[in-house]
Each structure stands twice: as C-alpha cells, then as structure tokens.
C-alpha cells in the first residue's frame, strides 16, 4: 500500500520581499497533508527549477506581489521545459491584475489566485490538478 504525498515547492522569485502570502499558502498546503519545500525569499529562476527537479515535486507555487509576474512565470515555465520537466504544474498568486491572468494561463500557468482568495480554494484546485496529472502518467 503506497502513500504518495503531494510535494510542492513554494517559491518567491526575485527581490519581492512580501512573504506573508507565501507562508500562508505553505501552511495551508501542509495542513492539507502535502509536503511543502519552502525555499525562502529572493530565489533565482534557476534555483527554483533546480529545486523542483531535485525534490521531484508535483508543482511549483509562485508568490509575486512586485508586479514582475509576467517575467517570472515565463522564465520558470521555459526553464522547466528546457530541463524536460514540463509535467511540473506551475501555479501561483499575489497581486496580479485580473486582466493579466489569461495571458499567464496561456503561457502554461495552471491557475492564479489573487488577494483574498480563501486558502481552501487554492488547496482544492491543486489536489484536483495533481490527481489529473497523475492519471496521465
């Protein structure tokens, strides 16, 4: 009987120092039984991708409140593709204008959750997305 836990990296790319949201989400995912690799502030794209691969995670959750979401989502999604790891789910949240979400989704982001989203919504979405991904394996 195997017990395959959901593993997630929660990352804060770049110089953005707002880490409350990331911590709240990390805690909520843990409380839902997931293993969260929390890498702290000021991560580079390469560090985030490296961590995801070494830790064999199902997903990377990115928290961005600095306005640089477009750049970082793109770079991380491309970074994963370059390492043959596009099966890793990329999702996230923070201060991201509603109008820019479709763009990020087109790029390959699974879902984006803005300020005020109940954490249970994020957790449910991720559980569903991981189940879907594992079915495809």
């Amino acid at each position: 009987m195997s017990d395959r836990k959901i593993r997630v990296v929660v990352a804060k790319p770049g110089l953005d120092g707002h880490d409350r949201g990331a911590k709240v989400i990390a805690r909520a995912l843990r409380d839902a039984g997931m293993e969260v690799i929390y890498t702290g502030l000021r991560q580079t794209v390469d560090q985030i991708v490296d961590t995801a691969i070494q830790e064999d995670v199902d997903a990377i959750g990115i928290s961005i409140l600095s306005g640089a979401h477009h750049h970082y989502f793109k770079a991380i999604i491309e970074g994963l593709a370059a390492r043959d790891a596009s099966d890793v789910i990329v999702f996230g949240g923070g201060v991201i204008p509603e109008s820019e979400i479709p763009d990020l989704v087109k790029m390959g982001a699974g879902a984006i959750f803005g300020p005020g989203t109940p954490t249970s919504t994020c957790v449910k979405w991720l559980e569903g997305a991981v189940a879907e991904k594992r079915k495809a394996e």
């Binding site: 836990k5 990390a26 805690r27 995912l29 843990r30 409380d31 839902a32 039984g33 997931m34 293993e35 969260v36 690799i37 929390y38 890498t39 702290g40 991560q43 580079t44 390469d46 560090q47 490296d50 961590t51 830790e55």
Partner: peptide, 22 residues
C-alpha cells in the same frame, strides 16, 4: 518533522543550502 495532525510538512532546511544550487 511532519505534522502529526495532517501528515503534511513544511521542509525548510534547504533554504540554508541554496548557495549550492546549480
């Protein structure tokens, strides 16, 4: 440590080792 309540965990040792990333 894993949470005895949920079985989940926040794994944060890696933060201190990030200089070796890459």
């Amino acid at each position: 440590p894993s949470s005895p309540f949920s079985g989940g965990a926040i794994l944060a040792d890696r933060i201190r080792m990030q200089e070796h990333s890459g």
